[in-house]
């Protein structure tokens, strides 16, 4: 992972926004890595949860907003339960998703789900997916 830090980046408003929406203190994280160690979705993420926290601390807005990490999060709360610094990481992921979704773009387009898939899916799956992946 190679990230170029610039003054303008570090002063990014994104971290502030994430803290506001999630109600979490991003700078409380001391990189112990417990969140990443317990994350069931980590194989599908490009940045691990602890890396995402570091990026946020550095104000690397673009890297994190364009990453897969928050979309692969399944909101299982394992990280939040295990965090020794009491950071609710799944709330941080929620904030990142919302910052993206609030620019009026959907991550999952309900009308684009193939019909043979829809036939199988129970409403419990659709409701929570749309809540997390659509604006």
């Amino acid at each position: 992972m190679r990230i170029i830090l610039k003054g303008s980046k570090v002063k990014s408003k994104l971290t502030e926004k994430v803290e506001k929406i999630s109600g979490q203190n991003i700078f409380a994280c001391y990189q112990c890595g417990k969140c990443s160690a317990g994350c069931p979705m980590i194989d599908s993420m490009d940045y691990m949860p602890n890396q995402a926290m570091k990026l946020l601390q550095m104000g690397a807005a673009e890297e994190i907003i364009n990453s897969k990490t928050m979309w692969m999060c399944a909101s299982c709360h394992t990280c939040s339960v295990r965090c020794p610094r009491d950071i609710d990481l799944s709330a941080v992921m929620e904030a990142l998703r919302l910052i993206y979704l609030r620019t009026n773009v959907n991550k999952v387009e309900p009308s684009q789900i193939p019909e043979e898939e829809l036939k199988d899916l129970p409403q419990i799956a659709l409701v929570c997916n749309f809540r997390k992946m659509t604006r």
């Binding site: 069931p40 599908s44 692969m72 399944a74 299982c76 394992t78 997916n129």
Partner: peptide
């Protein structure tokens, strides 16, 4: 028994659920 099954990822990432 307390590990996540992948939850709502089942809608758009069913291969991951297959793994889980």
């Amino acid at each position: 028994k307390v590990e996540c099954c992948g939850s709502y990822q089942t809608v758009n990432n069913k291969e991951i659920i297959a793994d889980r």
